[in-house]
Write a protein that binds this DNA or RNA. Sequence first.
DNA 1: ATGGCAGGTCCGACCTGA
Length: 251
Amino acid sequence: MKLATWNVNSLKARLPRVLELLDKHGPDVLCLQETKCEREAFPHEALAAAGYHAVEHSAGRWAGVAVAARRDLPLEDVTRGLSGEVAPDEARWVAARVDGLHVASAYVPNGRAVDSAEFGRKLAFLDAMRAAAPALDVLAGDLNVTRADLDVYDPLAFAGSTHVTPEERSRLEGVLQAGLVDAYRELHPDEVGFTWWDYRQGHFHRRMGLRIDYLLVGAAHAPRLRSCGIDRDLRKGPKPSDHAPLLAELA
DNA sequence: ATGGCAGGTCCGACCTGA
């Protein structure tokens, strides 16, 4: 079973690259974040032509998430929105049962600044994810938290910023303690695995990134993990997202 | 020290992202 997750920063702008990913990797399940489209504008037809179908939770110009799957894998028990989240209309969570697995696609709020109201809402979203985690087999998405300093290109430069604080990191650990395993870190304990790079100043080519996208799998599935990696090639080329997709394979 | 890129939308600056 091939799993993938990608923050596409507009599904409309990124549709050619998403189709490229499907053709190149043929994942069974692809979780998407920042689709940034109205529900009516979701490109179901283009995905169908590529052999996929999808369920989405959309909020127009901001956020938006989806779970896509190979056409022969039904998407059942769809849940839009995360129980306990502060702003359910922001479309940051969609979950479905695929091939017996309960899969969620998550886009955690950015948090803006540590002293902002948005930061408290980010922590609340992470707490709500912890509560939902025990019922999940796969929690994939842009969690907007670096798990450790290894996941930050310059920890000193990020001191005092969001994405690196003990408050955020302890909540991410809480999600893992609820029964999930960080697939990339499980297979690559010491490797840098950035998934996001600022568009500006050539950060991507200077390898100045963050690891903020995750594939978390239920602890019972961890022994089935065969590979997990980031496809940097999809961060290159025409009109890339500022995130690269993260992929994993379960035996 | 500042802004730098790319997406969206109120089509022209402004907001958001991380």
